[in-house]
Each structure stands twice: as C-alpha cells, then as structure tokens.
Simulated scan of single mutants.
Amino acid sequence: MNEINKIYQQHVTHELKLVSNPDHAILNKDKVEAKVLAFLCELGKFGEEAHIFSFWDNSSTNSKDLIDYYIDGLHMLMSIGFELHVDNLKNYQEINDQISIANQLIKVYQNALKINETYTFEAFQNCVDDYFTLGFKAGIDFDTILENYIKE
C-alpha cells in the first residue's frame, strides 16, 4: 500500500467510527460543500502562515503552526474523499515543476472548487496531488507530514 493511501485509509477508519447513518452511501452534496469550505479556510491559514501572499509581513514563520495548519487542511481533504466514497488514492509522484508557490496555492484552491462542482475522483486526486506539492514547496517533507498526521 502506498504512503498517501495509508493516510487516507487511516482517515476512513476514523470517519467510519463516527458514522452511524446507514444512508451514508448516498452522496451528501451539502456535506461535501461544507467540507470544501472548511478545507479552503485551512488552506488560507496555511498560506498566510507560510507568507505565500502576505509579502508585507516581515515576521518569521512559525514552523510548528505551519505544519499544524497544513495537517488540519490534510484532515479536511481526506474527509472530503470520505464523503466522495473514494476507495484508494494513487501514489503521489512528486513533479518537479517550475510554478511558484503562490501559483501552487491558487491551483489547490481551483482544484478544491472543481471538487465542489464535479464530485469526481479525478478532481479529488488532482487536489490531493497539488496539496502535497504545495506542502513540499513550503519545505515540509513527506515524513514530517506522515508523522504529524498520525499524531492527531
């Protein structure tokens, strides 16, 4: 099992413990919408803490807060996958591209909105891939992501 899928399967196990509604098999678009909004909120907090768009802020980045915001966003993203009834995630392959971290943040926002429009696995997988790329561009390595995700 690939590492990203391990994170997702751990989240699914957690969500299944919380779900007592037998009608969960029906796609609840309102829940997806609410979780996409929550994800976008966490994404904004991450972007602000990483100083991606707040170039006027000269304070230093608190790496603990940065990782916490990132992991909170990852939890929400995995929760969206649960609502979409995603079975497995593809293994992430880091793409060495030249887009700026600001454009990467915008790309993740756009992908999240695409999830909300289409409710498709492809939109979700693209958002997951781009979210991990964003974390890597911000200097967070996969082992740190995995370690902090498992802690929560």
Rank of each mutant, 00 (worst) to 15 (best):
M1N: 12
E3S: 10
I4E: 05
N5E: 07
K6R: 13
Y8P: 05
Q10M: 15
H11F: 07
H11R: 10
V12H: 04
T13M: 02
T13L: 04
H14E: 10
E15V: 00
L16S: 13
L16E: 15
L16I: 15
K17C: 10
L18G: 04
L18T: 01
P22M: 02
P22R: 08
H24L: 00
H24G: 12
H24D: 07
A25E: 10
L27V: 02
D30G: 10
D30N: 11
K31H: 04
K31E: 13
K31F: 13
V32F: 03
E33W: 04
A38R: 06
C41G: 11
L43Q: 04
G44D: 01
G44E: 03
F46M: 06
F46C: 08
E48V: 06
E49S: 01
E49V: 09
E49Q: 12
F53R: 05
F53C: 04
S54F: 10
W56H: 09
W56T: 01
D57F: 00
D57S: 06
S59V: 06
S59C: 02
S63Q: 12
S63E: 14
L66R: 09
I67V: 15
I67M: 11
D68W: 06
Y69T: 02
Y70H: 10
I71L: 06
I71M: 03
L74G: 12
M76P: 00
M76F: 05
M76Q: 11
L77K: 02
G81D: 04
F82N: 02
E83I: 00
H85A: 09
H85N: 13
H85Y: 06
V86L: 12
V86F: 04
N88D: 14
K90Y: 03
N91S: 15
N91P: 07
N91V: 04
Q93D: 09
I95T: 15
N96G: 00
N96P: 00
I99Q: 12
I99L: 08
A102N: 07
N103E: 14
L105H: 15
L105A: 13
I106L: 03
K107D: 13
V108K: 08
Q110V: 09
N111I: 01
N111K: 12
A112K: 00
L113R: 15
K114C: 06
E117L: 15
T118N: 14
T118L: 15
Y119D: 02
T120A: 11
F121W: 10
F121A: 08
F121M: 09
E122F: 02
A123Q: 01
F124R: 08
Q125S: 05
N126Q: 13
C127H: 01
V128S: 07
D129P: 03
D129Q: 09
D130G: 05
D130M: 06
T133I: 12
T133K: 12
L134S: 06
L134A: 08
G135A: 05
A138K: 01
I140E: 04
D141N: 14
F142C: 02
F142D: 00
D143Y: 02
D143S: 05
D143M: 10
T144N: 07
E147H: 05
N148A: 08
I150P: 01
I150E: 10
K151F: 05
E152P: 00
E152W: 02
